[in-house]
């Protein structure tokens, strides 16, 4: 999977990205770089990552997601992860992985409502 293949949409002051492919290392790193570059360029107030399409989130992918949110925070952008599936949530918790500090929402609408518009 090539770089830049995960489309990043602008919704008002926010960025919306929908993950649907298997995030193995190369893709996950490109994904993180692309997102941070987009934040740098747009100065977005918020970032929504929709993971409804992910049926598997292992500790590696979970960490990429959590790290991306932390990096975005450092750049002044709030991140909300939306659409984590029941079986994915249960698996992460059973493994003992806590995505502490990561904000979550049931769907894109709820997620957008959690992100304050800039100023």
């Amino acid at each position: 999977m090539a770089r830049g293949s995960i489309p990043i949409l602008r919704v008002g002051d926010n960025l919306l990205v929908t993950v649907q492919t298997d995030l193995h290392d190369a893709v996950a790193e490109a994904f993180q770089e692309d997102l941070l570059a987009a934040i740098e360029k747009t100065g977005a107030a918020g970032l929504l990552i929709d993971v409804t399409g992910l049926d598997i989130v292992d500790s590696y992918v979970a960490r990429v997601l959590a790290d991306t949110a932390k990096m975005a925070r450092l750049m002044g952008t709030d991140t909300v992860i939306v659409g984590i599936r029941p079986e994915v949530a249960a698996t992460l918790v059973r493994m003992g992985y806590t995505m502490s500090g990561v904000r979550t929402a049931l769907n894109v609408d709820d997620g957008l409502a959690m992100l304050p518009a800039r100023r």
């Binding site: 049926d55 598997i56 989130v57 292992d58 500790s59 590696y60 599936r85 029941p86 079986e87 994915v88 249960a90 698996t91 059973r94 493994m95």
Partner: peptide, 17 residues
């Protein structure tokens, strides 16, 4: 079931890694 499939698939991913 869905939850068991997700569990074993994730374990496969962790162990293969």
């Amino acid at each position: 079931g869905t939850f068991a499939v997700a569990a074993v698939t994730t374990a496969a991913s962790e162990l293969a890694r």
